[in-house]
């Protein structure tokens, strides 16, 4: 009887072993915003259906996603921090970079609005007011694209957040969702990408206070990891994914993703300079 238990265990093990062998697949390291907003859930089945290439997405912050590409652990990198992406290409880790789409960031805050920024269009001024009021602000603090964008805005506001660290400026070192959970719990302000915000369910008192500023523009780009650097990179399949993303079919699929009728990402592969 007892032997049978071990036999069962062995059987479970045996079925676990043949793991590979299906259709061709590529690994894409991308950001939490594209995954958690549900965009990939919408567009990947369309791509896989037309090409028979399965796409495996590892969702991380932009900094970490680029690192995964540098180490050769992904075939394609799909992120949103243009400066970091151009560095990645310049260092020879991959590329060329193709612009794919944009969405925007929003500043989210508590309904009570202690810093009185509600309805303000100027995001830099909003941050100045938050700092002046010493109102709690949650920072991603994880080298993500959103974190980089946030730091750029503080810089433009001329505020050194190091002085508020530990007091009103709180770095959580986590993804967009967990950071939003923290902001909701602490009634804090936070910079979020609109996609994750729209898909986010645990809002409690939080709502958008500042939006529509040009400086809140958030561009996404995609790059093939350099196959000369990492020979195992599935260059052909990876390139097909990139080509599809920037093709009319891919751009249409991106535009077609909506939550409650609201479009989350706006394709702009053909916009010069994007």
């Amino acid at each position: 009887m007892f032997r049978r238990l071990f036999l069962g265990l062995g059987l479970a093990m045996a079925t676990a072993l043949p793991l590979a062998a299906q259709t061709q697949s590529i690994t894409v390291s991308s950001t939490t915003s594209t995954e958690q907003s549900g965009l990939f859930g919408h567009i990947l089945p369309i791509f896989t259906q037309s090409t028979d290439i399965a796409v495996r997405v590892v969702a991380l912050g932009t900094g970490q996603a680029l690192d995964v590409g540098r180490r050769g652990d992904a075939d394609v990198v799909f992120v949103h921090d243009k400066d970091a992406e151009e560095r990645f290409v310049a260092e020879g880790f991959g590329g060329p970079r193709r612009a794919v789409m944009f969405n925007d960031f929003v500043i989210v805050g508590p309904a009570g609005d202690p810093a009185r920024v509600n309805g303000l269009r100027d995001s830099v001024e909003a941050l100045r007011r938050i700092a002046a009021a010493r109102a709690p602000f949650i920072s991603r603090g994880d080298r993500s694209g959103t974190h980089a964008a946030e730091l750029r805005l503080w810089q433009q506001a001329g505020i050194d957040v190091a002085t508020g660290r530990g007091a009103w400026y709180r770095e959580v070192g986590q993804g967009m969702g967990p950071a939003l959970n923290t902001a909701a719990a602490q009634n804090a302000y936070i910079l979020a990408d609109r996609g994750t915000w729209l898909a986010f369910r645990n809002r409690q008192e939080l709502r958008i206070v500042t939006e529509g500023d040009e400086r809140l523009f958030n561009q996404y780009g995609v790059m093939l990891v350099n196959p000369q650097r990492h020979a195992h990179v599935k260059a052909e399949a990876g390139q097909r994914f990139i080509d599809w993303l920037v093709s009319p079919a891919g751009q249409e699929a991106i535009a077609g993703y909506k939550i409650n009728g609201e479009q989350l990402f706006f394709p702009n592969a053909n916009r010069p300079g994007a």
Binding site: V58, G177, P178, N181, A199
Partner: peptide
């Protein structure tokens, strides 16, 4: 890597849904 349909297990799925605030 919590890849959907490939390496997603119960605990990583729970972590993901927590992230999404669901």
């Amino acid at each position: 890597g919590n890849i959907e349909g490939f390496t997603r297990v119960m605990t990583t799925a729970i972590a993901l849904e927590t992230s999404k605030g669901d």
